[in-house]
Simulated assay, not measured.
Amino acid sequence: MIVKKNLSLKAIFRFAGQHLIWLLPWMLVVPALYYFTHWKFLTIPLLPLSLVGTAVAFYVGFKNNQSYDRVWEARKIWGAIVNDSRKLATLIKNYRAEKISVSAEGARTRKEVVHRHIAYLYQLREQLLRPTQWEHVSLSGIFGSYNQRRRDRFFNNFKQELDEVAERPYLSEEELQSLNGFNNRAAQLLDKQTQSVQALYDIKEINWMQQSDLQSVLNSFYNEQGKAERIKNFPFPRKYASFSFVFVCIFVFLLPFGMVGEFAKLGDGMIWLSVPVSVIIGFVYVVMELIGDYSENPFEGLHNDIPMLAICRTIEIDMLQMMGEKDIPRPVQPKEGILL
């Protein structure tokens, strides 16, 4: 997630600057041909070009709105996970049955529930970051490798924080081994949480109503995980997304033919002024398309993503402090204007 108020020119160029490599030559070819050959058929009236541009702008704008909805829904899901995680910590810490004091077994089980939940959060993050075939990091060719390098750079910037996650053993070796062979380890961890809550009830640490409350909170994690997996595993409708790209390409292709005719009316020397104007207009449309395109997938590890590492760390800190533990990790801080 980008956390700076304004993007620098360097950041803008990193995001979309490579498209100037093909925009500038194309916007230069048509005026050059017209200037040296005086072929009048190279021009098209501005009115049909304006109609195409207006239609494309509406189409891309609507697509961007729908793409943003996917990002915002993903953020609401993780916001609900934050709230429910705090509920789980305070309930598992404070709920009692008839007993006044907590037994050693009960204290151990309560601590295991909190630690297992932290492990669950990081496991869920890891599962959501697995690339799908329609995401940018899975593309073949130059753009796929470029986005893979971009993702690797983000992860390398947070290598220390990621290493800290790996070094904190919230699960025992036995429990880790028991997860082998499962496709959805996060769901299996939630199942183990239910077993632990049942164990607290069996030893009379909590009563049936408290058990029901705790299970209700655990069920909410199933719901939120399912919502996140729906966004992850159901792509933005590909025809809708692909035709947006096609329409932008058509408009950019026609753009120099319309602009050169308009500037030719001002004199032969003014034809060359159509080059920078066309590049600017074309770049605006290309960037609009890119913004929507990169907002479709909020769980692929790029700059528009939900900052799941920072959210998981926030929950981890809150839960450990609620349980009175002293070994508390530090919050994740943005690096180069990006929060992972």
Rank of each mutant, 00 (worst) to 15 (best):
P25Y: 13
L47Y: 09
P31F: 10
V246S: 15
Y240T: 07
R108D: 05
I311F: 03
I281N: 05
D191Y: 15
Y95R: 08
P276F: 07
N183D: 07
H303G: 04
I12E: 02
T54N: 14
W134A: 04
H136Y: 13
S172G: 09
N94F: 12
I250Q: 14
Q195K: 14
S178Y: 01
M308D: 01
A32I: 15
F251C: 10
F182E: 01
I203K: 06
I81K: 01
I21R: 15
H19S: 15
N64H: 06
S196A: 11
I12N: 06
M1S: 05
F221K: 00
Q215C: 13
P237H: 02
V277I: 12
R130E: 09
I142T: 14
E126L: 02
R125Q: 01
E167I: 12
S196Y: 09
L23C: 07
T194D: 09
N304H: 09
F155P: 02
F15W: 10
E174T: 06
N223C: 08
F251L: 15
P276M: 11
L91W: 05
V3N: 03
S140P: 06
S103C: 04
I92G: 10
I92M: 14
Y201N: 12
M319T: 09
N233S: 07
N207A: 14
D69L: 12
Y170D: 00
G144A: 03
T109E: 03
A57Y: 07
N157L: 15
S138F: 00
I92H: 00
L24S: 09
E167D: 10
P25I: 10
L129D: 00
N183R: 12
F155C: 12
L214Q: 06
L33M: 14
E173P: 07
H115K: 09
H115V: 05
F234E: 06
K63P: 10
Q215P: 03
L129V: 00
A55Q: 01
N219A: 13
R330S: 04
R185T: 07
R96K: 12
L33K: 08
M308A: 00
V137L: 07
M27K: 07
Q193P: 00
R330F: 11
T314H: 08
A186F: 09
G17V: 01
N6W: 15
I291K: 12
T90S: 14
S138R: 07
N157C: 02
F158L: 08
I21K: 13
S67N: 03
E161N: 03
L51C: 10
G267N: 00
G61R: 05
G267W: 00
V82L: 13
E161K: 02
S278N: 03
E175F: 05
K192V: 04
N64K: 04
I92W: 10
N6L: 11
I311W: 05
E224I: 03
L189D: 02
I231G: 00
R149A: 15
K326S: 08
K326A: 03
